[in-house]
Nucleic acid binder design. Structure first.
Lengths: 230, 230
DNA sequence: ACAATAGTGTCTTTTAGACAATATGAG
DNA sequence: CTCATATTGTCTAAAAGACACTATTGT
C-alpha cells in the first residue's frame, strides 16, 4: 500500500474511543478488548478506531459505528465525553482521540471474539494496566456518569423497557457506589414524573413488583435543558 | 513549500478554537476576529489555529497558546468544551476542532489589530452570521457557562482579585440573564465559604463596599469534585 | 404460617424563595 | 442632611434526609 496522501505539515490521527457501560450481576462494567499487537500487547484497551474521513462520517456517526461493531445494536445512547490528545499517549505517533460513552441494557453480548479482539465486559472498579491512557479515560467517563445520573435520566438506558423501581434503584446504587433509602428514592423518582407505571407486574419468588416504563414525554422536556454537554 | 508528509489515508486537520469570555459594560462578550480571506471572508470567527504537532504540544497547551496570542495573558482559566467535527463544517476540508472556553477579567484588551485579525469583543446575545459552525460553538459554550456557574466557582475568573459582592452578583446576573435577590444571593455565596472578606473597602460615590477575595483553600477542595469535566 | 420482597407515611433538617428596613459614607 | 449604595433578618415553601411498619405473593 503506497502512501498517497501528502500534507505540508505532520498530521495527527483522529480516533474515536468508546466506553460502553452496562450492568452485570450488580456490577458496573464496560467493554474492553485485548490487544494482540504492540504497543501494549496483552493489555486490555477500549474499543475504538480511526475516524473514516473518506466516508465523510461525523464524530457521532463514527462512535455509533464502533458501538455497532462491538454490540450489533443500532442507535445506542452515546454522548461525547472528552477529547484526549497528549503527545505521548500513543507511542506510534500523534493520536487525538475523541472519547464517547455509551450505555446499554444488561444482557448484551459483545460481538463474538473475532480472534483479533476478544471483547469482554470488565468491572469498572479495580481495572489497572490498561493500554494507552485508557485507565484515565475510563475514570473520566465514570465521573461523568456519576455526575449525570443525579440530574438526568440516563440511568434508564441501562435497563430494559420495563423495569421495577427496585431495579432502577439498583442502577443508581451501583453507579453511585452507595446505598439509598428506598422510600426517599421512590419519592424522588416519582416526583420527577419520568416513569409511568404499567399494569403489568414482574412475578419473582415473592410479591410481584409493578413494572414501570420510561415516560418519554416528560423526559424530552426535561432533557431539553440538560443535553448541553454540561 | 513542498508537501513532505505522506500518509496512507486522508487525514483530518485538528484545530483548537477558543471562546474567550469577558464582561464589558454589563454585557457578556467573547472575542471574535474578522476573516480576511475566504471562506467566510468578512465574517466574524472564533480565534483558533492548528494544533502544532511538530512542537509536541498538548491540546490544553495549544489552547493556552492561542489564548496568549489573543490576550497576552498567561495561565488563563481554560476548559475543554466540546469537539466539533462535522464533515462539512469547513469547506476547505476535514477539520476537527477541539473547542475550549476561557474566562478573563474585565478590562483585558485584545492583542492589537495585527491587520490580519482585527480582534474585538462581541456581545454574546445577537451574534449571527459567524463563520463555519462558530455560532453553534458559542451557543454550546454559553450553555455550559450558564450550567457551570450555578455549582462551581468559575464566576471568579471574570473578576479581579478583589471584588465586591455586588460585582459578583452582577456577574451571575449577566451570565444567567436574570436578576437575583440580593439577600438570598449573599447568603448563598457566604454559605459556600468560597469568598473571604478583606479589611479593604472600595470607595465609590457613596457607602464603600467591602472587598472580598476568592478563597483558594475551600475552592480547591470544592473543585476537586467538580473538575471532572462533568 | 412463613419467607421474602414490595410498598408506603411522618417528622426533621436543610435549602431556596419572597420580602423591606437600617447603616454608612461622600458630597 | 441628603443621596446612593451596602448590608442585614425573618417568615414561608420546597426538597432532602432519617426512620419502621404494613402488604402481597409463592411456597
Amino acid at each position: 500500500m503506497s502512501k498517497k496522501y501528502e500534507y505540508a505539515f505532520p498530521m495527527p490521527s483522529v480516533t474515536v474511543d468508546l466506553i460502553i457501560f452496562t450492568i452485570i450481576k450488580d456490577q458496573l462494567c464496560f467493554l474492553t478488548i485485548e490487544r494482540k499487537h504492540p504497543p501494549f500487547r496483552g493489555h486490555r484497551a477500549l474499543p475504538g478506531g480511526f475516524l473514516e474521513v473518506d466516508r465523510g462520517e461525523t464524530l457521532d456517526e463514527a462512535a455509533q459505528r464502533e458501538a455497532f461493531e462491538e454490540t450489533n445494536l443500532k442507535d445506542l445512547f452515546i454522548e461525547q465525553l472528552y477529547t484526549f490528545g497528549d503527545p505521548n499517549r500513543d507511542p506510534r505517533g500523534r493520536v487525538i482521540t475523541v472519547a464517547y460513552y455509551c450505555l446499554v441494557p444488561s444482557g448484551v453480548k459483545p460481538v463474538a471474539g473475532d480472534d483479533a479482539k476478544n471483547a469482554e465486559w470488565t468491572p469498572v472498579y479495580g481495572v489497572a494496566d490498561m493500554a494507552f491512557d485508557h485507565s484515565k479515560v475510563v475514570q473520566v467517563a465514570l465521573d461523568r456518569l456519576k455526575g449525570k445520573i443525579a440530574y438526568t435520566n440516563i440511568a434508564y438506558q441501562l435497563l430494559p423497557k420495563r423495569f421495577t423501581l427496585t431495579e432502577l434503584q439498583n442502577v443508581y446504587e451501583i453507579i453511585l457506589n452507595e446505598t439509598l433509602d428506598k422510600r426517599n428514592f421512590r419519592r424522588h423518582i416519582m416526583s420527577r414524573g419520568l416513569v409511568a407505571s404499567t399494569k403489568e407486574r414482574r412475578g419473582g419468588a415473592h410479591r410481584p413488583a409493578k413494572l414501570f416504563t420510561f415516560n418519554q414525554k416528560t423526559a424530552d422536556s426535561q432533557l431539553a435543558c440538560l443535553t448541553s454537554t454540561s
